[in-house]
Write a protein that binds this DNA or RNA. Structure first.
Length: 479
RNA sequence: UCCUCAGUAGCUCAGUUGGUUAGAGCGGCGGACUGUUAAUCCGUAGGUCGUAGGUUCAAGUCCUACCUGAGGAGCCA
């Protein structure tokens, strides 16, 4: 008999029919006469209740069905006599595929802390929370490709190893095959990278944007979706050293087109989750309520599904940096000196507390901030007429802050070169990037979406290390 | 990297102003129980109190350093 997934049994299984299921034991309980085994196979958040007659299988066999053990069971589907589930399986045949020593197995049929499970990341796929997150994550990956495919975008694999250290997006991980104990030296004492694998110093990418721009200058609409590496010593709930980023880049888009796409994209993804991940989101919502039940009412977040619907149904607020500064300057917390960093006026970089005030207190919805002072933004952003601001946009979400950062790009060769010189970006090394501004340059725009930050929002989880299977953070690269 | 907090049984935590043999719940194991739902009831085993120093007659408790984890800040996605 072929194995049937529990998700299919719960969806289309027929009472009275016989099925073969395989999975892992979550709990076993029962009396001398009958045992109840909650079996989960990862296909869905729900368990299938297996009813096993003790006399039929013998205590010795059933005793092996401990939490974590894997089983194959053949049996008839039957309406459940108990109240926790509609159907259950009356076991006819029961085979233990893999035993699981209860004294050694770390997962117990009880609540574990997320910190504990993070240390058991090799086993946490077997928990309800992490299997739900993994399924939602997959749905979001699929939805990303779906969205862009439907719009005629072409997915581009940009390089993971890069020789460019001019992207300016943060500290980089070095890539080398040289023996670190015996580094080849140049005459001046510096390291001779010409002896290295690529004949020059190389790093892991911090962004696929620059290569993405090259592709957009021929294919018009492209996107990347790949791993991204930042060697920053960041220890927060929203930073990873290795994360996944989606970077669309569009020819002929100005900043407004860019914002429209970003908003449509985020809403599409969240609606996709609502439409396709109902069971998992229901579970994650309950998990969040449970976690926050000891918090004060004003510190609790909005119920998960309500929050997701709210974002889908409301327009994002769009305003310029200058307008935001004015709002912050006149705000109560600023006047009452409640900000740790008071807003004096134009030019200040916005701190987390300011972004949170705008999003969570003032507008109470996602905010898109545009036209930042050029001094606090990257070299490639298009300079405005005022020569003070650039056509940048940051999409700010409640709780997680910046979920998207993007801009219209500077397509004017002379202006771009001038900005690079001002910001000490080595233009010679970037000849290929500058070439796009020499040959048929067009206005274009793009943005980067941190995939795990999206996952934080959609799942309601509080720590980015819990929405990626194997998080890499400073001092932590286990598994 | 900076600031704050934490590290006691497999897990979650309690441990009073430093004072005798370190506790609970859950989990494990053994038993009871005619269908359970994180089952229930009875019993039982299990701890170099993060590591290394120091103060003291006496340290889980005080001090110092380090390690690990968490939260916040910065960097950003």
């Amino acid at each position: 008999m072929r194995r049937t997934k529990i998700s299919d049994i719960l969806k289309t299984g027929e009472v009275g029919e016989e099925y073969l299921v395989k999975g892992w034991v979550r709990t076993r309980r029962g009396s001398r006469q009958v045992n109840f085994i909650a079996l989960n196979d990862g296909s869905v958040i729900h368990n299938l209740q297996i009813v096993a007659d003790v006399e039929k299988f013998g205590e010795d066999l059933l005793r092996r069905a401990t939490t974590g053990a894997s089983l194959a069971i053949t049996g008839k589907l039957s309406p459940s006599q108990g109240s926790g589930q509609k159907v259950e399986m009356l076991a006819e045949k029961l085979e233990v595929l893999g035993d699981c020593d209860p004294n050694a197995y770390p997962l117990q049929p009880k609540k574990h802390s997320l910190e504990f499970l993070r240390e058991k990341a090799h086993l946490r796929f077997r928990t309800s929370t992490f299997s739900a997150i993994a399924r939602v994550r997959h749905a979001m990956i699929f939805a990303v490709h779906n969205f862009f495919t439907s719009k005629g975008f072409v997915n581009i694999h940009t390089p993971i190893i890069t020789a460019s250290d001019a992207e300016g997006a943060g500290e980089m991980f070095q890539v080398t095959t040289m023996d670190l104990n015996q580094l080849p030296k140049k005459e001046d004492g510096g390291i001779d990278f010409s002896k290295d694998f690529f004949g020059k110093a190389t790093n892991l990418t911090v962004s696929g944007q620059l290569e993405g721009e090259l592709a957009a200058m021929g294919l018009a609409d492209i996107y990347t979706f790949g791993p991204t590496f930042r060697a920053e010593n960041s220890n927060t709930t929203r930073h990873l050293a290795e994360f996944w980023m989606i970077e669309p880049e569009m020819a002929f888009y100005d900043l407004n087109d860019n914002m429209d796409l970003a908003e449509e994209f985020l809403k599409y993804l969240i609606r996709y989750a609502l439409d396709h991940c109902q069971d998992d989101l229901d579970f994650l919502s309950k998990r969040l309520l449970e976690e926050e039940k000891n918090k004060k009412a004003e510190e609790r977040s909005m119920e998960l599904l309500e929050k997701l619907r709210f974002v889908v149904e409301n327009e994002f607020v769009r305003l310029t940096y200058t307008e935001a500064i004015q709002i912050l300057k006149d705000s109560k917390p600023n006047k009452k000196k409640q900000f740790k960093y008071p807003i004096e006026g134009y030019g200040a970089d916005l701190q987390s507390e300011h972004e949170r005030f705008l999003v969570e207190k003032h507008f109470k919805k996602p905010v898109v901030l545009t036209d930042y002072p050029k001094e606090i933004k990257a070299f490639y952003m298009k300079l405005n007429e005022d020569h003070k601001t650039v056509r940048a946009m940051d999409v700010l979400f409640p709780q997680i802050g910046e979920i998207i950062g993007g801009s219209q790009r500077e397509e004017n060769y002379d202006k771009l070169l001038a900005r690079m010189e001002e910001m000490d970006i080595p233009a010679e090394e970037m000849w290929w990037y500058l070439d796009t501004r020499r040959f048929g340059a067009v206005p274009h725009s793009g943005f980067g979406l941190g995939f795990e930050r999206l996952m934080l929002f959609v799942t309601g989880m509080g720590n980015i290390r819990d929405v990626i299977p194997f998080p890499r953070t400073p001092k932590s690269a286990e598994f």
